[in-house]
């Protein structure tokens, strides 16, 4: 019983347009688990189904089952009694482009913590420092915590968003192409960080870059049209020949 997310027969549509048609996937603890697929296959929608973020978009209808195992408790994420806010506090998410709030570096972590978790100032300070250290950002920003977050570089901003998610101490971390908008050097920093974090958190990463998937994946899912997920062997990503075969598989599934 090591699975943390079990998705079965998931249908998601926006304004009548079906993006996912019966997607199924099981994510084990640990990871990183990488989800790859061509653009337009619904990777982001599948990821957002886990923390019920699709509901924030207009005209969204979700059916099917998403079961999570958090805090030793197995439950249906879409059940009546589950508050999406509560759920999202236990499942961290990092977006494709860095989305810092228009406040200082420190407030970016402190404000959500105080609003969502109602922590004391001392607790917040401790968590913020710990999270920034985990995200490998503490040494870079400890002297400029009061500066606006937008003054950080793109890679730093993305790690700040990662730290913001880590400060909640989630069991599961969702990352939606977290390096897509970063330069090559920042990409490597974030990738190393994710491998490091995978020891402590369950990490689920969406990517469309096969090389990146090869560096990260301990488990691999290939997503086809309509969200048909097929598990593949991550070893396929390490040799060029197998990568070709995988690319062919992606094309075939799209």
């Amino acid at each position: 019983m090591t699975s943390i997310v079990e998705i079965a027969n998931l249908h998601v549509s926006f304004g009548g347009r079906e993006v996912l048609r019966g997607a199924s996937m099981t994510v084990e603890r640990g990871g990183p688990t990488v989800l790859i697929g061509r653009s337009g296959t619904g990777k982001t929608t599948l990821l957002r189904a886990v923390n019920r973020l699709n509901e924030c978009l207009p005209g969204c209808v979700t059916t099917g089952s998403v079961r999570l195992t958090l805090g030793g408790e197995n439950f249906d994420a879409y059940a009546q009694g589950v508050r999406p806010e509560e759920l999202r506090r236990r499942v961290g998410m990092v977006f494709q482009t860095p989305n810092p709030l228009p406040v200082s570096v420190y407030r970016n972590i402190a404000l959500p913590l105080s609003l969502a978790l109602n922590l004391s100032a001392a607790d917040i300070r401790g968590r913020a420092e710990r999270a920034l250290t985990e995200a490998g950002l503490w040494d870079e920003v400890k002297d400029r915590l009061d500066q606006p977050a937008v003054t950080l570089s793109g890679g730093q901003q993305q790690r700040l968003c990662l730290a913001r998610a880590l400060a909640y101490r989630p069991e599961l971390l969702l990352l939606d192409e977290p390096t897509a908008s970063l330069d090559q050097r920042s990409v490597r920093v974030v990738e190393d960080l994710l491998l490091d974090l995978a020891g402590r958190y369950t990490v689920l990463v969406v990517s469309h870059n096969l090389r990146q998937a090869g560096r990260l994946a301990r488990r691999l899912f290939v997503l086809g049209e309509g969200g048909a997920a097929r598990e593949a062997d991550p070893a396929m990503l390490t040799s060029a020949v197998d990568r070709e075969a995988l690319a062919a598989l992606l094309d075939e599934m799209t």
Partner: peptide
Amino acid sequence: RLRLTAAALGLTRAQELLRL
């Protein structure tokens, strides 16, 4: 612009509007 960020951080709609 705030919608998804705030939601992903587990904030309620009221918190998103009033606090952010």
